[in-house]
Computed example of a mutant assay.
Amino acid sequence: MFRQIGFVIFVAGFAASAAAQQRSLGVFGLWGAFQDGGRCYAIAEPVRQSVRGTRPYASVGNWPGRGIRSQLHIRLSGEQRAQSAVLVRIDGRSFQLIGRGWDAWAADARADAELLAAMRAGIEMMVETRGTDGRLIRDHYQLRGAATAIDAAAVACLRA
């Protein structure tokens, strides 16, 4: 209950930067879905993070005008050390992302599809890398509501 309230506050704060154009599509479990101009996305904050450097999140976005559909983006809680792998673990399956600085993405559309299939079926997701200071960065997400939020964002962009 408190985690969900915290998420709603997080989403409201995240939304404030683009409030003039942003439209909420709903909150589903620990994930929210939004439409903002020419993009639609599902987003969540981690339930636990090992570093307190920035406000991390995981999002799945659609930008029809750019031909992008269901692309995973991770904002890490700390800046990634150059040449360090960014790993995502979803219920025992591991995936490697491409990372740069504070951000990480899947290597291509095929990798995105594999990650999203695992997210839809999964319960927990952990993102892990090494920070610029050598410390382990580990952000934990719950996937309850992720599939519904991802679908809501995708459908909203199909209608746009």
Score class of each variant (00 low, 15 high):
Gln35Ile: 15
Asp36Asn: 13
Asp36Ile: 12
Asp36Trp: 08
Gly37Tyr: 07
Gly37Gln: 07
Gly37Pro: 04
Gly38Arg: 12
Gly38Leu: 10
Arg39Asn: 08
Arg39Asp: 05
Tyr41Gln: 05
Tyr41Pro: 06
Tyr41Asn: 01
Tyr41Cys: 02
Tyr41Thr: 05
Ala42Gln: 10
Ala42Val: 07
Ile43His: 09
Ile43Asp: 07
Ala44Arg: 12
Ala44Met: 06
Glu45Trp: 10
Glu45Met: 11
Glu45His: 15
Glu45Ile: 09
Pro46His: 02
Pro46Tyr: 03
Pro46Ala: 02
Pro46Trp: 00
Pro46Lys: 02
Val47Gly: 15
Arg48Asn: 11
Arg48Leu: 06
Arg48Gln: 12
Gln49Thr: 02
Gln49Gly: 02
Ser50Tyr: 02
Ser50Ala: 02
Val51His: 00
Arg52His: 08
Gly53Asp: 05
Gly53Glu: 05
Thr54Ala: 11
Thr54His: 09
Thr54Asn: 12
Thr54Phe: 09
Arg55Ser: 14
Arg55Val: 15
Arg55Gly: 12
Pro56Ala: 04
Pro56Ser: 03
Pro56Val: 02
Tyr57Leu: 12
Ala58Phe: 11
Ser59Lys: 06
Gly61Ile: 12
Gly61Tyr: 15
Gly61Lys: 13
Pro64Ser: 04
Pro64Arg: 04
Gly65Lys: 10
Arg66Phe: 05
Arg66Met: 11
Arg66Cys: 00
Gly67His: 05
Gly67Pro: 00
Gly67Cys: 04
Ile68Glu: 03
Ile68Met: 11
Ile68Gly: 04
Arg69Ser: 09
Arg69Val: 01
Arg69Gly: 00
Arg69Ile: 00
Ser70Leu: 08
Ser70His: 12
Gln71Leu: 08
Leu72Ser: 09
Leu72Tyr: 09
Leu72Cys: 06
Leu72Gly: 10
His73Thr: 11
His73Val: 01
Ile74Met: 15
Ile74Thr: 12
Ile74Gly: 13
